[in-house]
Simulated scan of single mutants.
Amino acid sequence: MKRFFLQILLCLAALMVLGGCQSKSEIVKLPRPVGTLAVAGFTNPMFNWELLAGYLPHEGQPVNKRVIRELDQKLVQTLGKHGVTAYARPAITRQCQEIEVFENMGSKREAAFSYWISVGECMAADYLLVPQVLFWQPHRGMKKPNYNVQPASVVIDLYLIDVNNKRIVRRIHFDETQQPLSENMLEAGKFFERGGKWVSAMELAEEALDNGLMELGL
């Protein structure tokens, strides 16, 4: 009986905070970029010096190449869902990614930025979208909420680079490890949107792409 009432209290508390959760209509969006757009394939930086900003949660932990390929597909699908169709796709941009190399100039962060500018110039693009996956932990265990699971955890960065003016227009940083409702009532909105169950790392990545691309105007 006590357990039943505890569940009722949790549900009532969750409903009370639902109104405070950010909706897609509240996302601050950039205007859609005017000019040619190239979309890079996902990369998986292994060391901090490969990043354009921030730091890795854990250095030297590679993400499975199969995951990288699926992320590229999800990226293309999400852009299509948002009505973005006129752009150079990752399969094309990856050719320039393989041609260009990091240059030994300035700091390592400057070299990383110069590399992506070179990729954009190689593509003759006005804007370059650079997606990076920094951490990937798959969900392991039952789908129903319990404590005997390894929750999904994902860290993804999206950069929109103005190639001509050599500047980063905006960086979108997504860092989330799913938590049970009982541990974080403030995340009740996400809990119910996800069907009250544990989700996969790819489902978290889809959320990152959907919301992140909207913020970038894409």
Score class of each variant (00 low, 15 high):
K143H: 11
H139F: 11
E121L: 14
C96S: 10
N64T: 08
P31W: 04
P90M: 07
A152R: 07
P131C: 08
Q95L: 11
F135D: 06
A88I: 12
Q22R: 15
M142Q: 13
G141V: 09
R140D: 05
I99L: 12
A86D: 13
E70H: 13
L129W: 06
P31M: 09
E121Q: 14
A40T: 09
K24H: 14
V154W: 04
A111F: 01
G141E: 04
Q150T: 15
P131H: 04
Q137V: 09
A86H: 11
P138F: 05
Q77G: 10
V130D: 00
Y159F: 15
A53P: 03
P31C: 05
P57M: 14
N44V: 15
S153A: 09
Y55Q: 14
Y147P: 01
T93G: 00
P45A: 06
Y147I: 08
R89G: 01
K144T: 03
F135E: 01
E59F: 03
Q22M: 10
V34P: 00
V154S: 08
I161F: 02
A53H: 12
K74I: 11
P62D: 01
L52D: 00
E70C: 12
D162R: 07
L71V: 10
E98W: 09
V67C: 12
K65D: 09
Q150K: 11
E70V: 12
Y115N: 00
V133L: 10
M105L: 15
C96E: 05
E103I: 04
R89T: 10
R140C: 02
Q22V: 15
D72G: 09
K143T: 09
T43D: 03
K143M: 13
L158E: 00
G54V: 07
L75K: 06
A125N: 03
I27Q: 02
E50Y: 03
V119H: 02
Y115Q: 03
V154I: 12
G41T: 12
G20A: 14
L30Q: 11
K108E: 12
P90D: 07
V155H: 12
E50G: 00
W49S: 04
G141K: 13
Q73T: 13
M123P: 10
S25G: 11
M142K: 13
Y159H: 15
P62H: 02
M142A: 14
N44A: 08
G20Y: 14
I156K: 05
K24V: 15
H58N: 12
Y127S: 02
F42K: 02
P145F: 02
K65M: 06
M123V: 15
K65Y: 03
L79E: 10
L71C: 03
H139W: 07
F113H: 04
A91V: 13
N64M: 01
R69M: 08
I92V: 13
K24L: 15
T78P: 03
P131S: 05
I117D: 00
Q73W: 12
V39S: 00
G83Y: 00
Q77Y: 09
P45Y: 12
M142S: 13
G83K: 07
A40Y: 07
K74S: 08
G120Y: 09
A124S: 14
T85G: 05
D126K: 07
F42M: 06
L71R: 09
V133S: 04
A152D: 04
Q77T: 15
K74D: 08
L71T: 07
